[in-house]
């Protein structure tokens, strides 16, 4: 009976994962390997293709007049504009992760301040995990899979923009080697969110209890669906240590951008998350 409960929990989290996250690993891998009936993604590999692709990135919010201005503006602003649209997407993704968190059984019964703390500290880790399936060693899908941006192009941007994604690529290549599927990912994301050691938590016990249950479900699922992958559960959990370092470095880079880029403004939701984070 206990393992039936754990399976039910795994199924529930997988369903809310599918409900709240627009681009699954299965879909992303199909796009990346060309095994989809949809058209191939538009490739951004230089400034010219970035300018062309910007229309697609911003198609949902950028009016024609803005677009003309964008086309006329100097290259120097291209990075800023691109990272501005990255921020909008990130803010949107934060709200998707929030909805996913709320769907974890017991989460909304936690102290509201603790819910905020769990999201504040967990959400960038979750986003880094979620971008991994969109990446391969040569680049990453963006804009819901409509665009493929090459790793070389991201590396060619001016400092410090060029330093933002490279550590995520390195992590992703290692993480993708574990070959988790979407249902494994759903459980792992819940484990990350339910971390009882985040600074400033008021009531740790109920969070640890929830995490314990999800950990059991993850362990059971990995054993069942990847029987030949030795120590997979331990290897997945080890990735949580790498994530903390990645987030610390990311927040430092954002801090640097704030100091060096006069035109830089951080999305208010991302500001809330990053302020006094580490």
């Amino acid at each position: 009976p206990e393992s039936a409960d754990l399976r039910a929990l795994a199924r529930h989290l997988y369903e809310s994962y599918l409900k709240y996250f627009p681009l699954t690993k299965a879909k992303a891998r199909a796009i990346l390997s060309g095994k989809t009936s949809d058209s191939a993604p538009f490739v951004i590999h230089d400034m010219k293709s970035l300018l062309e692709g910007e229309q697609m990135i911003n198609s949902r919010q950028m009016p024609a007049q803005e677009l003309r201005r964008a086309e006329m503006s100097v290259m120097h602003e291209v990075e800023l504009r691109f990272f501005h649209s990255c921020q909008s997407r990130s803010a949107e993704a934060v709200s998707e992760v929030t909805e996913f968190a709320k769907s974890i059984p017991g989460f909304v019964s936690l102290d509201l301040n603790d819910q905020v703390t769990l999201l504040k500290y967990g959400v960038i880790e979750v986003l880094i995990i979620m971008i991994a399936p969109l990446m391969n060693k040569d680049g990453t899908l963006i804009s819901y899979g409509q665009i493929f941006m090459t790793r070389e192009f991201l590396k060619s941007l001016r400092k410090p923009f060029c330093e933002m994604m490279e550590p995520k690529f390195e992590f992703s290549v290692r993480f993708n080697a574990l070959e988790l599927d979407d249902s494994d990912m759903a459980l792992f994301l819940a484990v990350i969110i339910l971390s009882g050691d985040r600074p400033g938590l008021l009531n740790v016990k109920p969070i640890e209890d929830l995490q314990e249950t999800v950990l059991h479900a993850l362990e059971l699922q990995l054993k069942t669906s990847h029987p030949d992958s030795l120590q997979l559960f331990a290897k997945v959990l080890q990735k949580m240590t790498d994530l903390r370092q990645l987030v610390t470095d990311h927040v430092q880079l954002i801090q640097l951008l704030k100091e060096t880029e006069v035109d830089w403004c951080l999305h208010p939701l991302l500001q809330e998350i990053m302020r006094d984070l580490y």
Binding site: T98, L112, V116, E272, I273
Partner: peptide
């Protein structure tokens, strides 16, 4: 609470889209 206004709103609003 003031420091995390939007996060609070996201957590408390169910289904209604929050103006991000």
């Amino acid at each position: 609470k003031e420091k995390h206004k939007i996060l609070h709103r996201l957590l408390q609003n169910s289904s209604s889209p929050v103006d991000l």
